[in-house]
Amino acid sequence: MSPQQSTPTRLHIVTGKGGTGKTTVAAALALALAAEGRRTLLVEVEGRQGIAQVFETGALPYEERKIAVAPGGGEVRALAIDPELALLDYLDMFYKLGRAGRALKKLGAIDFATTVAPGLRDVLLTGKACEAVRRKDNAGWRAYDAVVMDAPPTGRITRFLNVNDEVAGLARIGPIYNQAQAVMRVLKSTETAVHLVTLLEEMPVQETVDGVAELRAAGLPVGAVVVNMLRPVLLDDADLESAANGRRTAVAKALSQAGLGGARKGGQAERLVDPLLAQAHEHAQRVLLERRERAEIATLGLPTYELELRGEGVDLGGLYRLADSLRKQGMTGGES
């Protein structure tokens, strides 16, 4: 990496319907982007300490802290943004309040400001991430090769990112307005990509489709779709058709041939037919549904990446395997 070097995308914003695993995907992407000696900052903006849970570490403070080493010696740092402390930073930066700002916090003024002016809150949250994207040292080196934001759910993502419109009602001139303008320049630039995490289920896919439409209408850059928790297909097309049509006689015969007793009524094979058919039918219906949802995702015309369901859950080792999968599929392609 050199001071002049640039990358196609520096700010990766990860959103998704609740329950789709967006925090896990954001963490895996941060690890993938940090491979081979690169540095990534993983930012949390919702105050849930989800990143700490995924990386199996203690609650994160309001500071950029190293939480993982990526393959090849890279590193992931994490930041849990506290809106009140971010506002204190902002007041100190633009108004040089120092101790006076801390006094305002004690009086409750900071909490009041971020509560009654949600647009200001979003400027602070997004602004902190954008500042990390732009940050350089005295030699002109980038502080981070990439910043990954674990963002709010799909239903709120466009309003959260479109801070310029939110702040317009608060101020049309001055530092707050200028900060919002600077944030929007980053968010709408080629340095940014909003990735949407979904499952191959009707509601998450529909919310993804709606979210993409809203982001595009707002002029925000859409990146990729990540299909998470993908379950394996256990039957080929011929077997799926048989399962969907419930071909009872064929199943009983196959069980008998497998040595599970005769297919006569009341025999062992006969007793296994109905439970097996029910499971096979359920599997066939799920596969057909997932194919329809995958076709719906394809209409978006976006790069799509898939992560398999891990039945044992995602521990730290599983997180590294997910990162490796994203890297092998090319989601980090072109990152320096």
Rank of each mutant, 00 (worst) to 15 (best):
Gly140Asn: 01
Arg121Thr: 15
Val226Gly: 00
Met184Gln: 15
Val116Leu: 15
Leu187Arg: 06
Thr249Gly: 00
Ala103Thr: 11
Arg39Val: 10
Asn228Leu: 10
Met331Phe: 08
Glu207Pro: 04
Ala52Ile: 14
Leu272Glu: 00
Ala86Val: 06
Ala52Lys: 10
Phe160Ile: 13
Ala280Thr: 06
Arg10His: 04
Glu270His: 00
Lys265Tyr: 04
Glu56Ile: 10
Asp236Arg: 09
Val69Asp: 08
Glu131Asp: 11
Leu161Thr: 02
Ala171His: 09
Ile297His: 08
Thr24Ala: 14
Ser336His: 02
Gly261Asp: 00
Gln53Gly: 13
Asp82Pro: 02
Val209Ser: 11
Val194Gln: 05
Thr299Gln: 13
Ala68Trp: 01
Arg321His: 06
Ala109His: 15
Leu124Met: 08
Lys253Thr: 10
Arg321Pro: 11
Glu335Lys: 08
Leu276Val: 04
Lys328Glu: 11
Arg294Ser: 12
Ser2Val: 00
Asn138Ser: 08
Glu296Gln: 15
Tyr95Met: 13
Arg271Phe: 00
Ala27Met: 11
Leu272Ser: 02
Leu289Arg: 11
Arg231Phe: 09
Lys66Leu: 11
Ala52His: 03
Asp82Ala: 09
Lys22Trp: 01
Gly21Arg: 03
Val148His: 01
Ile157Pro: 00
Leu33Val: 13
Ala32Arg: 02
Gly174Phe: 11
Leu255Ser: 05
Ile13Pro: 02
Leu107Gln: 15
Arg102Glu: 12
Ile297Asp: 05
Pro83Asn: 11
Glu36Val: 07
Ala70Asn: 05
Tyr144Ile: 07
Gly50Phe: 04
Ile51Cys: 02
Ala129Pro: 10
Gly98Phe: 03
Leu316Gly: 07
Phe55Ala: 07
Asn164Gly: 13
Gly119Glu: 14
Leu322Ile: 14
Thr126Pro: 06
Lys22Gln: 11
Ala59Asp: 13
Asp239Leu: 12
Val233Trp: 05
Ala132Val: 05
Leu79Cys: 09
Gly155Val: 12
Ser189Arg: 04
Gln268Phe: 00
